[in-house]
């Protein structure tokens, strides 16, 4: 059995066939080794994460799980319409509510997945420091559990859109959008989890960062509402969260599809995932001791 979640092969007959478990090499060699082992690690981590996420989802599953976001959407819609007099919310309330719901549901994956995934290693330190298993599963668990909840809500929204006659073949892309966003959030959570294990800083960072991200992302507001400053619209174009929200809304027929959003989402996901892989390769041997 290897270190920090690595499963080594064992010889069937005595030590003659059992491989030696060597000390980890220098981090430059570890990066290459991590890339080589990544498919095997994911094959080991994903099923375990799915089983853990399923168990957690069943634990949390309740009528409140669906009612809460719906009530939240209605509350925000009421405030925006009655207090701020937001255009679409007043003139086309159903469409606006669906857009709000799509944004809120997808964004909930980021909120809950990051908040719990970033501290997962430290919260389960007794497990991480004394047992060998795929550590990534602990970080993937909350992301997958919330993705399942959000996916259920988005499926209901898709039904609503179909009832309104705005749903098209592009609705199938919703699965890819949710999967891609879950991958993006998982990579981000992994980076934060490694940071939190070393510096115990993720909780504070998220306490400030998530509200800022919520304001900076068109979850509750429409980019068309941006008045002065064209630079702000251009900034939205490189915001990966805005890109994913746009893709989800366009899949549901609630917005126009923008190729730029797809490129932005893919580029950011690839960069964050690559960075997470490199940092994990560098810090994996130390995680068990730092938590």
């Amino acid at each position: 059995m290897g270190a920090c979640g690595e499963v080594a092969a064992h010889g069937a007959d005595g030590l003659g066939e059992a491989p030696w478990i060597e000390a980890p090499p220098r981090w430059t060699l570890r990066v290459l080794d991590e890339c080589r082992r990544l498919p095997a690690r994911l094959l080991a981590a994903l099923p375990l994460a799915a089983r853990l996420a399923w168990r957690e989802w069943r634990l949390r599953a309740s009528p409140w799980l669906l009612c809460a976001p719906v009530l939240l959407v209605f509350a925000h819609a009421a405030v925006l319409a009655l207090v701020f007099g937001a255009g679409d919310l007043v003139s086309r309330p159903a469409l606006a509510a669906q857009r709000l719901a799509a944004g809120a549901l997808l964004f909930s994956i980021l909120q809950h997945g990051l908040a719990r995934g970033a501290t997962a290693l430290v919260d389960e330190r007794a497990l991480v420091s004394r047992r060998a298993f795929p550590l990534e599963a602990l970080i993937l668990r909350p992301v997958l559990a919330q993705a399942a909840s959000a996916g259920l809500g988005l499926a209901l929204l898709a039904g609503w859109s179909a009832f309104d006659g705005v749903l098209g073949p592009r609705a199938l892309w919703l699965v890819l959008v949710v999967a891609g966003f879950a991958l993006f959030v998982s990579a981000l959570a992994l980076l934060l989890a490694i940071l939190h294990a070393r510096r115990r800083a993720a909780a504070e960072a998220l306490a400030w960062g998530l509200p800022l991200a919520t304001l900076a992302t068109p979850v509750w507001w429409d980019p068309a509402w941006i008045g002065a400053g064209a630079w702000l619209r251009e900034a939205m174009a490189v915001n990966p969260l805005a890109a994913y929200l746009g893709l989800a809304r366009s899949s549901l027929g609630l917005a126009h599809f923008e190729a730029g959003a797809l490129a932005c989402a893919c580029a950011w996901t690839a960069c964050i995932a690559g960075a997470a892989l490199l940092v994990l390769a560098w810090r994996r041997p130390h995680l068990c001791d730092e938590v």
Partner: peptide
């Protein structure tokens, strides 16, 4: 147990 790696040396188990 494989929970933490060694700094140097090696081991194996059957």
């Amino acid at each position: 147990a494989g929970a933490t790696p060694q700094t140097s040396g090696r081991w194996r188990a059957a």
